[in-house]
């Protein structure tokens, strides 16, 4: 799928279908980074673990786990239990995100300083450091 396309110098962010279906169909080395987004719930962590295993099998580049809607240390511990040695970014549970959604607006426009938004903006920076 993505592997057949030439996007030139663009950074491509692909918001894939829920689950691991699209990932199973991805060719080897089609992507440079896989962001595995998980909530601290058993089902979400299970899907995330399968996605991470697939991404490693397919040599899909850098793997980063985005732990989303984390409320406390026990939430974070449940993510670390599954993804022990992976690179993990912790996005707090943040009412600004659901608020933006209710208004049909971009979180970055409504609440640029909200903790979850700032964490994700920092992740962007980490993916493509300045000057890189």
């Amino acid at each position: 799928m993505l592997g057949s396309a030439d996007f030139g110098s663009a950074v491509v962010i692909a918001d894939l279908e829920a689950g691991i279906g699209t990932l199973t169909r991805l060719g080897d080395e089609d992507v440079d980074v896989v962001l595995v987004v998980v909530e601290p719930t058993p089902n979400s962590l299970e899907v995330g673990a399968r996605a991470a295993a697939l991404a490693r099998d397919k040599r899909a580049g850098r793997l980063i786990v985005v732990a989303s809607r984390v409320r406390d240390d026990s939430d974070l511990a449940s993510v670390r239990d599954v993804f022990g040695d992976a690179e993990i970014v912790v996005v707090p549970d943040d009412p600004a995100i659901t608020g933006a959604e209710r208004e049909g607006l971009a979180p970055l426009d409504v609440a640029p300083q909200a903790p979850a938004v700032r964490t994700l903006a920092e992740l962007a920076q980490r993916l493509v450091p300045d000057g890189g």
Binding site: S9, L16, L23, L35, V36, G48, A55, L127
Partner: peptide, 30 residues
């Protein structure tokens, strides 16, 4: 660079994709 955002339904994929995309675009990247 190609970034794939994956996960279970409702995990936060779209929120993550959107903030990253706009943050990078703001820096002048295509």
């Amino acid at each position: 660079m190609r970034v794939a955002v994956v996960g279970k339904g409702g995990s936060g994929k779209t929120t993550t994709s959107a903030v990253i995309a706009r943050t990078l675009a703001r820096r002048g990247l295509r």
